[in-house]
Simulated assay, not measured.
Amino acid sequence: MALPDVCVVGAGPAGLACAITAAQRGLRVRVLDAARAGPVDKACGEGLLPDALDRLDRMGVRDLHGRPIAGIRFLSHNRAAHARFRVAQGMGVRRTELHRAMLDRAAELGVAVEWGVPLRALEDIHAGILVGADGSQSRVRALARLESQVTTRRVGLRQHFAIAPWSEFVEVYWANGAQAYVTPVGEQQVGVAFLSTQKFDTMAQALNLFPELQSRLAGAPTLSTARGALTVTRRVRRVTTGRIALVGDASGSVDAITGEGMNLCFRQADALSEALAANHLARYESAHSKTLRMARGMSAALLLMSASPTLRQATMAVFATAPPVFEALLRMHVTGFLPPPDNQTAKTGYKQSQAAINATR
């Protein structure tokens, strides 16, 4: 039997995206995962931005069952502001549903996933290229001695509730050092995820920080157990060495406050498979750096907004009174491109935003 061109360690969304896009380019792919079987659940916000949906469509992953999302709404200190996606809608999708659809697509392309196969040594893998898609605590990264540094660390908690979504937006509730994300994922189901610098022992403890959300969910039955996770900002000096490459959280990450985890790993997977098909792995190193550049800036800004009540109140005031500012920032977040202000209100809002930021320095 011919050796595979690519062996991917990790059968999560990042690894499957890499396997699917590589197979679409004619490469032979093998996927290994230490888990017993999939789909595998994981604590995450479960909101897919329009760009992520577009990339899934290009992969041929189209059989997704979820709930359309029109944009993002921020709520803080009795202020609310929302921004709509301009070109296409996003979608709230249960993590297990996304994983199922991606596994099905990989199987359609002839990619076999071998479950219950932990990686013990790099020498055990026989393939042209080894891809580490095994998450933030990547074994591939450690064995390849690719250096990394964690600069921020926070905790997350997620649970699903049986209640009709009350908004067409992903709602983000803000408190000092913490956020609550409410994502519609079905006709009678929402996912609620918390991010914080402090650990919550229970969902009730987390909800105490967000009285409005606590009131909305009062009496709603739960549909899943509470699941926790760590979210870190990790910088990896290099994501390739020899015939080894990293993708997804294994290759570096930003705090989950951006909600862009899937976007990033899909972009990276596409860039990596393109480099593999061209037999030019060095191209991926520079392409990977570009995928994270905008997300790092957005993550830093949002974490600053989380930590500073003064900045948060000033920013919310701008977003509420000058919606084009929020919409422009959301468009930048989705596409990586910041359009210039297109009217006087937006221009004024930009100046106010800058003044608020300068006031915190």
Rank of each mutant, 00 (worst) to 15 (best):
V334Q: 00
G132F: 09
T222H: 00
K42S: 11
R28F: 03
L213K: 00
A320L: 05
R237E: 15
L330Y: 13
A43Y: 01
Q89F: 07
A346G: 03
A14S: 15
A106D: 01
F85K: 01
E123Q: 08
F74L: 10
H280L: 14
V113D: 00
G297Y: 10
A127Q: 07
D134H: 06
A127R: 01
N78Y: 13
Q89V: 09
R105P: 00
R153Q: 15
T152Q: 12
V182P: 05
E212D: 02
P68Q: 14
A88I: 08
R158D: 08
L75N: 07
R139F: 09
F200S: 11
G66N: 09
T315C: 09
R141C: 08
R153C: 11
A328L: 11
A121P: 11
D33A: 07
V40Q: 04
H65L: 14
R293T: 08
W115F: 06
A314E: 15
F337C: 13
E46C: 03
G259N: 08
F161M: 10
A346V: 03
L64V: 01
L223P: 00
Q189V: 06
G12I: 05
S299Y: 00
F161T: 09
A359I: 02
C265G: 00
V318E: 00
H288V: 03
F85Q: 02
G45W: 02
T348C: 13
M91Y: 10
D249M: 14
S148C: 10
H77T: 10
R237S: 15
G90D: 05
A307R: 13
A282E: 14
S306L: 10
H99G: 03
R238H: 00
M1T: 00
A52K: 02
L27K: 00
F210D: 04
R331I: 09
F74G: 02
A19T: 06
A282R: 14
F74Y: 12
Y173M: 10
L264G: 02
A356Q: 11
L276I: 08
P13I: 05
T183R: 05
G259I: 07
V170E: 03
P13V: 04
R25K: 11
A14V: 07
H126M: 12
D54Q: 11
T231Y: 10
N263I: 07
F85E: 05
A81D: 12
G90F: 07
V232K: 05
G252D: 11
E260L: 15
V190T: 02
A14T: 12
